[in-house]
């Protein structure tokens, strides 16, 4: 499995994590499988919304976008396109920064840790790293 395939799997997993949290916020899921109760504390805090939009919804849309772009980059037509990879790297870099901000909120404002959010943070970092490695590989190949 190449790096892009790995990134696509990470984005898919992230999409499910975000969708799970979003469904919870919409009331479609009763209790989060969390164990500590920290997930609910985080999800029900005022910080679970960013500029009036559910953070989980932002995550789901973001992961769906990254997944779609990564799957597109796997197609022969886009396989050698550095531009598309750069766009994915730019977007996922922004997602990593946003995730860092959310981790700051969890640790220092809400004072609770949501395991699912930690899972999502790990997935976006893995995704970003794989895309950077792939970008470097493509650059080396073209030089």
């Amino acid at each position: 499995m190449n790096l892009r395939m790995g990134a696509a799997v990470a984005a898919l997993a992230g999409l499910f994590v975000s969708a799970y949290l979003w469904l919870y916020k919409m009331g479609a899921i009763g209790t989060l499988a969390c164990g500590t109760g920290g997930c609910e504390t985080v999800q029900l805090s005022p910080q679970s919304r960013f500029l009036g939009v559910e953070v989980a919804a932002i995550g789901a849309v973001g992961y769906a976008l990254l997944l779609g772009l990564t799957l597109a980059s796997l197609q022969p037509r886009w396989a050698s396109s550095r531009r598309l990879l750069q766009v994915i790297a730019f977007l996922s870099g922004g997602a990593v920064l946003f995730t860092l901000y959310l981790k700051y909120l969890e640790l220092f404002v809400i004072h609770a840790i949501c395991r699912w959010c930690v899972g999502s943070a790990i997935l976006i970092v893995v995704f970003f790293t794989l895309i950077l490695l792939e970008l470097r590989r493509v650059r080396r190949q073209s030089t």
């Binding site: 898919l12 997993a13 969708a19 469904l23 899921i29 009763g30 499988a33």
Partner: peptide
Amino acid sequence: GVGFLIWQMNKAST
């Protein structure tokens, strides 16, 4: 993933 979400949505939480 879809199966997990459906299971979670139908699971009695009460």
